[in-house]
Write a protein that binds this DNA or RNA. Sequence first.
DNA 1: GTGTCCTTCCCCTAAAAAGGGGATTTTTAA
DNA 2: TTAAAAATCCCCTTTTTAGGGGAAGGACAC
Lengths: 209, 209
Amino acid sequence: MTIKLFIVDDHYMVIEGIKSLLRHEESIIWSGHARNAAFCLAELRVNQPDIILMDISLPDKSGIELCKEVKATYPSIYVIGLSTFNQQSFIKKMLESGASGYILKNATKKEILEALQTVMKGGIYLNYEVSNQLKSRTSVPFAVLTKREKEILKLISDGLTNVEIAEMLFLGTATVDTHRKNLLLKMGAKNSAMMVKLAIEHNLLPIGK
Amino acid sequence: MTIKLFIVDDHYMVIEGIKSLLRHEESIIWSGHARNAAFCLAELRVNQPDIILMDISLPDKSGIELCKEVKATYPSIYVIGLSTFNQQSFIKKMLESGASGYILKNATKKEILEALQTVMKGGIYLNYEVSNQLKSRTSVPFAVLTKREKEILKLISDGLTNVEIAEMLFLGTATVDTHRKNLLLKMGAKNSAMMVKLAIEHNLLPIGK
DNA sequence: GTGTCCTTCCCCTAAAAAGGGGATTTTTAA
DNA sequence: TTAAAAATCCCCTTTTTAGGGGAAGGACAC
């Protein structure tokens, strides 16, 4: 699994640091970087990465804003928040804005790779300290869903039936049915209505997006 | 259920197109059409339809204005917005002006009929793309639920079936069924999964329990 | 005291989901 | 290279929901 990675951070050192850390990782393809939100958006117009590591504080816009905008235009790009401090309120907002994870700037190489891989598979990554602070609701990654499952979950929450989803994704209805069953299983939901509620509670479904 | 339908649109093609699409629908009774707001208002003085399909941009007045005026004079007439583009700001304004729904001009026959039937029953209809864009959470006058409905909505989101809810509230299943149907109607949801999502988005369901 | 809204309950049918299996291919990770 | 994991598809049955009606009593307001 190769990951096209983009970094947005106004501190040059951070960009260099991460670059350097991941230098020898063959699975990481460098997609570029930006020092502010405007540059980031401009870059995205010509080149879309798989994942963006995004600082929470940027010179021209907050990471929360930028995250929202990016997810609105490019829903398939995953965003991972990046900051020096373990600030619960920001982390929550970031996740609520569609981010798939959050890492601290003092994260180890191993942690960063773990985060990238988890997110790339459609999961939510929060490191130990972070997830410890965010109790219960907005965070706990209680189910790791695959890309396809997330895709289908979203469509279920939009009110589509298995048949409609199958048509939309060019699949057989049996396939969608299987995915729906697996989703119910993974999330421990008794039916789709409960599943949607759980998904939103655990930020597997970005709402207001 | 027959529906007396009126169309206001300055594009003749649109009027013809809709007429043509619904030609064989016996439930639709043609109440007339107008190419501008003035003609529309004149027509209404002698003949009131059940529903007006109303273009957002008219030669003499915006659909938003016209909608307000129509609803002021004839509150019982339902208005459905009609436009080529999925423009969030207009849709919002249209709904705030009293419209009961919004459809795009590339809507299918099925969608149009669905919209007409939903609205005729007092519901709100927004098609898939449109409702996806409207994240408002507050500005759009969303459903007003009764106490009982809120109670049942909560239990639905917890994954309970009609039978289970009926037992819990000492009601007949038919009663719960009726409430569920009314909830779907009021919220313009196509099924319970979508309803839960909409409810959370509009703060009708406290999440995190 | 008439009318509207809420709540309660009933009929019917069709569609969809849930629950239980199983199986194959492709992709990915170790 | 080999073993998971993901994604695809199929069978079956039962339960639940959705969609179309209708009706009737009670509360509250105008």
